[in-house]
């Protein structure tokens, strides 16, 4: 029986856990893109050279295809995908335009140092329709960057080169310290890639973009060493509740 001056037992504090900061960042980017009208598609991490390279106009002679950049498995029959772009290829082979896909996930490159890991995460998107222009790509990129870093952020587009887009651009943002930091790559889908996927490049055009999730997470959370994300240290991970 409880008396009047009895106090209620203290609330039991249930600690919640935490989503991994990289998955959390990946999900928030994917959710943003989904709200803009992109549809999520998935693909395997073990890929063929055909989907990972050939279909994307990355020729056999391209340096990325050398053994020192790409992991080969199954007696060189397959590769660990070096980017999420082959997922877009699979999507385009399955569907006809207009289409707008995004995919995100693990990718692999043969690197290992304070700024590069053999496994990291990408989010990529593609939009194919009649009359898709670079000016629409700019609109989309502004939306993505503003949503990630706020509308005060200063950004610039810089001509770049990727075998699967033409024209290609890299986008930098200006850091608080006044340094330009590369954030994402994008461009107009190279008509060769559309033709490879049985999409008539005379009728359709596309835009595509891709970004590295770790890089964005490092900038947003001020993480200096990329390896911190993968030590599975609870003192680190539980800060991202």
């Amino acid at each position: 029986m409880s008396s009047d001056n009895d106090i209620i037992l203290p609330e039991i504090l249930l600690e919640t856990g935490a989503l991994h900061p990289i998955n959390s960042m990946k999900d928030s980017i994917m959710n943003l893109l989904r709200s803009l009208g992109f549809q999520i598609i998935y693909g395997p991490e073990i890929e063929t050279e055909e989907y990972n390279f050939d279909m994307l106009n990355i020729k056999e002679s391209h340096p990325a295809r050398q053994m020192h950049d790409t992991f080969y498995v199954n007696n060189k029959l397959n590769v660990l995908r070096t980017h999420t772009s082959p997922v877009q290829i699979r999507g385009m082979l399955k569907k006809t335009p207009p289409l707008a896909f995004i995919s995100g996930g693990k990718v692999y490159r043969k690197d290992d140092d304070a700024t590069h890991l053999p496994m990291f995460h990408q989010v990529e998107g593609i939009y194919v329709d009649e009359e898709v222009t670079f000016s629409q790509l700019k609109d989309l990129i502004y939306k993505i960057i503003y949503s990630l870093f706020g509308e005060e952020v200063e950004l610039r587009f810089r001509p770049s080169y990727f075998p699967f887009t033409e024209p290609s651009a890299e986008v930098d943002i200006l850091s608080k310290e006044g340094k330009w930091l590369e954030i994402l790559g994008c461009g107009i889908v190279n008509p060769v890639v559309l033709d490879n996927c049985n999409i008539d490049s005379a009728k359709f055009s596309g835009l595509a973009f891709g970004l590295g999730v770790e890089r964005i997470a490092m900038l947003k959370h001020n993480v200096i060493d990329i390896r911190d994300f993968y030590k599975s240290n609870l003192d680190f991970l539980n800060q991202f509740k």
Binding site: G37, P98, Y127, S135, Q136, L137, D139, F157
Partner: peptide, 21 residues
């Protein structure tokens, strides 16, 4: 590139059928 125009993007016309994953 920074001087190229910006035109609003609209993906309403694209298929939204989910791939059941």
């Amino acid at each position: 590139y920074d001087n190229l125009p910006i035109r609003s993007i609209n993906l309403d016309g694209t298929s939204k059928k989910n791939l059941d994953i």
